[in-house]
Design a protein around this nucleic acid. Structure first.
Lengths: 199, 199
DNA sequence: ACGCTACTTGACCGCCTGGTCAAGGGGCCG
DNA sequence: CGGCCCCTTGACCAGGCGGTCAAGTAGCGT
C-alpha cells in the first residue's frame, strides 16, 4: 500500500501499528483478528484497510520498523568503539539492551522466525546485522585480538547467546539486571578468545 | 483424551501425529487445518477427534513426545561421560545432533516457544534440561574445572548457542558438518572457562 | 462558500474453521 | 454365528475470519 498520508493519517497508521504490535505480541499473530484491532482502537474496520493491504502486510511493516530501529542502535554503538573487540562488546550490549527494552518487538521477531511468510524479510535484516558483526570480528582477528575462525559462524553464536538470554529475562527466569548482560558479554568474549593465543 | 487403543488404534494415532508434525512444521500450526490433516491421510474427520480432543492437544502430545526423546538422548550422553566437563561437551553434542536430525521437531519447539498456549509445557521440559545442565556445570565448578559462576545463566547461554546455530543449519546458512558442532563446543567451553583460572 | 480529497463507517460477503454426531462397518471373542 | 466394542464416515453446525464497498464526514486549499 502506497498512499499519500496527511499528518493525521500518519498518526492513525502509527496507532494501528502500535496497538497491533501489542496484541500480536500478547495474543499471537494468527489468533488476533483485524476486527479485534479496529475495535480495540474504536474505529471502523475500513480504517484498517485504508492503511494496509492485509494483516500480513501490517506485520511486515511492524517488523521492518523494529529492525530498522535495532540496527540503528547497533551501528551507533559499534561506531563509537575504540577497537574491534570494544566494538564487539558494544554491539552485544546494545543489542541486548534494545531487546530487553522492547519485549513486544522481540516477541514478534521470535514468532516471525517460525513462519515462512515473514521469515524472508527478517532473515535479510538479520543477515545484515550478522554481516556487520562478522566484519567487526574479522577486524579483531586481523588485529590479532582474537584467534582466527569462521566469523559468520561466531557471529551467530553471539546472536544465539544474546537472544536466548534476553528471552529468559522476558520470561522472568532471569532478572533484567546488568549482571545478565555482563555475564553474556564475558561468556561471549571468552568464547571468541578461545585458547588465549600466546602473546 | 484417555482411550483404550488397540494395536491398530495406536498406529493410527502415530500416523496422525507424524503427518501433523510434518504439516505443522512446514505450514505453521494455525494455518494448518484439521481437515487438511485428515484429508492428507485419506480418512474422515471423525478419526481425528477419536484420538485427540482438539488440535491444540495434538500439538501438545507431539511436543511432549519430542521432548522426551531429546531428554533421553541428552541423559544417555551425559551419563557416559568421564568428567563433568566431558559431560558438558557430550550433552552439547548430543543436543545439537538430535536437533539437526529432527528439523520438524526443532521447528515446532521454536514455534511453541512463541505461543503461550504451548509455552507452559515446553518451559517445564526446558527447565528440566537446563537444571540437568546446571547440575553438571556446578559439578565442574566444584571440581575446579571451570571458574564459579551462575550455573543456570550459563546453561542458558549454552542452550542459546546450540539453538541458534542449529537454526542456521536448518535454514541452510551453515552447512550441517561436524565443524559447526565442533566450533559451537569450542566456543562454549572457552566461554565457560572464562579467564583460565590460575592452576 | 465550495469542492476536492483524505479519511471513516459498518453492513455485508463467501469461505473456511474447529468441532459434533448419528449411523455404519469390521474384526475379534465367545 | 452373534454380539460387542473399537474405529470410521462425512454431512452438518455455529461462528468467526479476512477482506470489500457504497455511502458519508471532515478538514484544507482556494
Amino acid at each position: 500500500m502506497d498512499r499519500k498520508l496527511t499528518q493525521r493519517g500518519e498518526e492513525r497508521r502509527g496507532q494501528l501499528m502500535a496497538y497491533a504490535t501489542q496484541r500480536f505480541a500478547q495474543n499471537g499473530f494468527h489468533p488476533t483478528s483485524v476486527a479485534e484491532i479496529t475495535e480495540g482502537l474504536g474505529v471502523g474496520k475500513g480504517v484498517f484497510y485504508w492503511y494496509f493491504d492485509s494483516k500480513e502486510e501490517l506485520l511486515r511493516a511492524i517488523l521492518a520498523d523494529a529492525q530498522l530501529d535495532l540496527r540503528r542502535r547497533q551501528r551507533a554503538a559499534v561506531s563509537g568503539a575504540a577497537s574491534p573487540s570494544d566494538g564487539i562488546e558494544a554491539g552485544l550490549r546494545a543489542s541486548m539492551e534494545w531487546s530487553i527494552e522492547h519485549p513486544d518487538y522481540f516477541r514478534l521477531f521470535q514468532f516471525a522466525a517460525t513462519d515462512d511468510r515473514f521469515n524472508g524479510g527478517l532473515r535479510k535484516g538479520e543477515q545484515v546485522a550478522v554481516n556487520d558483526a562478522a566484519k567487526v570480528l574479522s577486524a579483531a582477528m586481523d588485529a590479532g585480538e582474537i584467534p582466527d575462525g569462521d566469523a559468520t559462524l561466531l557471529s551467530h553464536a553471539l546472536l544465539g547467546v544474546n537472544t536466548h538470554l534476553v528471552q529468559q529475562v522476558h520470561r522472568g527466569v532471569l532478572d533484567a539486571t546488568d549482571d545478565v548482560i555482563d555475564a553474556a558479554v564475558s561468556f561471549c568474549l571468552h568464547g571468541l578468545l578461545g585458547r588465549p593465543s600466546p602473546r
